[in-house]
């Protein structure tokens, strides 16, 4: 194996440990910290099924953002949807052709949508970046990290397009490398520059994820303003520490 391949194998494992370790840690924290009071933003659903629908609608269509800012919605939604399509296309690198889900991934629809999603992803990101620079209010609230995050993901998109259209790589060898990572049967990585930049940026994104604003992804599911059922009069809501207070003075008896 080449030194380069060994380096990337190590980097890959480190990045995945940080990504999943960090994310699980954060998700467990969000789940552990209680919500002591009912604070759904109303009108809110009266049932759990309603809450699932509300969150689903937010996750899939960015409903509140749509109401709040049309430009941000257009660019933001375009970017996220493209990211999802590109992700589906990339699944072909981690699924064996023998697998029963292979046809779900290796078909015209997924592959061609994923192909062009690269462009819409970069356009969406460029729109978000333009807004961040041009709108005085958004510029005011932006830190260097907010710009760098956009540039990082744009870099991933542009290098991805570069591999697809300009500087092709040996995808068979690439797949062997990636499958090898999962099977602990390490293989050589093609040493094309564009590919290496692409992979490096992806690994960087993975490392940053659990320590940055990218935590909005799990956070979305934990916001009490959106995930609580509007039934405070019908069902008593009490947190463990609220119950402790009560037990101490007995005034709710």
């Amino acid at each position: 194996m080449t030194a380069l391949s060994i380096t990337y194998v190590v980097l890959f494992y480190v990045a995945m440990i940080i990504l999943f370790g960090g994310l699980i840690n954060k998700i467990m924290l969000y789940a552990r910290v209680p919500a002591p009071l009912k604070i759904p933003v109303t009108p809110a659903p009266l049932t759990k099924a309603g809450v699932v629908y509300r969150i689903f609608y937010e996750v899939v269509f960015f409903n509140s953002l749509f109401r709040g800012s049309k430009w941000t919605w257009i660019f933001g939604w375009m970017f996220h949807l493209s990211l999802l399509l590109a992700f589906f296309r990339h699944l072909r690198y981690v699924i064996s052709p023998d697998s029963f889900i292979w046809p779900l991934v290796n078909n015209m629809v997924v592959q061609s949508f994923g192909h062009y999603a690269g462009f819409t992803m970069v356009i969406g990101l460029a729109g978000l970046l333009a807004r961040r620079i041009l709108v005085d209010r958004v510029r005011y609230i932006s830190s260097p990290s907010d710009y760098l995050m956009l540039l990082l993901i744009m870099g991933i998109g542009v290098t991805g397009l570069g591999i697809a259209y300009v500087s092709h790589t040996d995808v068979v060898q690439l797949k062997a490398f990636i499958m090898g990572l999962f099977l602990f049967d390490w293989q050589n990585l093609p040493s094309d520059n564009v590919l290496l930049v692409h992979l490096t940026l992806v690994l960087l994104l993975a490392v940053i994820f659990p320590i940055s604003k990218l935590l909005h992804a799990p956070g979305l599911f934990f916001a009490p303003t959106r995930n609580q059922v509007d039934n405070p009069r019908e069902q008593r809501h009490i947190s463990p520490w609220g119950a402790e207070l009560e037990a101490k003075d007995g005034r709710n008896a």
């Binding site: 958004v138 909005h216 956070g219 979305l220």
Partner: peptide
């Protein structure tokens, strides 16, 4: 430690400007 809202809201803002 006591308010999930605060913990999640401190982490989750992406500065979208909406």
């Amino acid at each position: 430690n006591k308010y999930r809202s605060l913990q999640v809201f401190m982490d989750g803002c992406v500065k979208c400007g909406a």
